[in-house]
């Protein structure tokens, strides 16, 4: 795609593209992990099957995106990091996922809320990326958008069911949305990496995804009889958040669990 016309400009673009693919890959990886924690813990067997499907889709996206990020990086540095190197051998501050996806499963309503807000975002993101000037990203997004349409549908269905269901479920769903909501601001925050990939026609600048996300989320909340939470976005130290490697406290535990076996056997194949 790049690399022939102007060396430094294309290197700059590859750098931004690699960082971008890593952010998207980390989002999918961590979201998948949180859902996978629920194996054999669903409210009914049918839901165990459904959550595993979504987790598997996200893991597939993560693997494609991390592999791509690794190959872009190799072009720049000459050193290849595989999907497993990236997943298992980076420390917490090198992960670039948004904080929303790393929030723990406190109850089923929270899992639904997190997945609802995130999949609605991923849907707009992948829809935009399916037309990316970068062929690889366009290909990954074209496949993923179909999966995410289903995830969004699944989570919306539960948001309505829980919002409309019983007094308890409605209260739990409202509380879950309120707890997750402050982390949605980060989904739509721009920075130089996002602007660079958007400028090159490779990616989407997050603020552009917001109107469609707002409209969709508001529609589902109205159907569910739930109010849109009036809580301000969470900030980070000096404006830094997940994209800059500053995560929630819970994230370190997630990584410790995910990485410990792989790291206990340096260089081993699995």
């Amino acid at each position: 795609m790049s690399g022939r016309e102007n060396g430094s400009a294309s290197a700059e673009r590859d750098t931004a593209l690699a960082a971008y693919a890593l952010r998207l890959g980390d989002d999918a990886l961590v979201a998948s992990h949180r859902l996978a924690e629920l194996a054999a813990r669903g409210p009914q067997l049918e839901e165990d099957v459904a959550l595993a499907n979504i987790s598997l889709d996200l893991l597939g996206q993560a693997r494609s995106l991390l592999t791509y990020a690794g190959s872009l990086e190799e072009r720049l540095t000459g050193v290849l990091r595989t999907e497993d190197d990236l997943a298992y051998l980076r420390d917490e501050d090198q992960f670039a996922n948004c904080r929303l996806v790393e929030l723990p499963n406190t109850d089923f309503a929270f899992t639904v809320a997190r997945q609802f807000l995130f999949s609605a975002y991923q849907f707009e993101l992948y829809t935009a990326l399916a037309g990316s000037a970068d062929g690889t990203l366009a290909g990954i997004a074209g496949k993923a958008v179909k999966e995410v349409a289903y995830h969004r549908d699944h989570a919306s269905g539960w948001t309505v069911r829980l919002g409309d269901g019983t007094e308890e479920s409605s209260e739990r769903m409202a509380a879950a949305l309120e707890a997750a909501w402050p982390y949605t601001g980060e989904l739509f925050a721009s920075d130089p990496v996002f602007r660079a990939v958007a400028g090159a026609g490779f990616g989407a600048d997050p603020p552009e995804l917001r109107p469609a996300w707002d409209a969709f989320v508001d529609g589902v909340l109205a159907e569910a009889g739930l109010a849109r939470p009036e809580v301000p976005p969470i900030t980070g130290p000096a404006g830094m958040g997940g994209r800059q490697g500053v995560h929630t406290e819970a994230f370190g535990y997630l990584l410790a669990e995910m990485q410990h076996l792989h790291r206990s056997h340096p260089g081993a194949a699995w």
Binding site: Q44, E46, V49, A50, N53, D153, H154, G157, R161
Partner: peptide, 18 residues
């Protein structure tokens, strides 16, 4: 088992067309 037809369809898709 599902509470309504829509939910049943989704569950069926997940379960029987993996």
């Amino acid at each position: 088992h599902a509470a309504d037809a829509e939910h049943a369809l989704r569950n069926a898709r997940d379960l029987y067309t993996r």
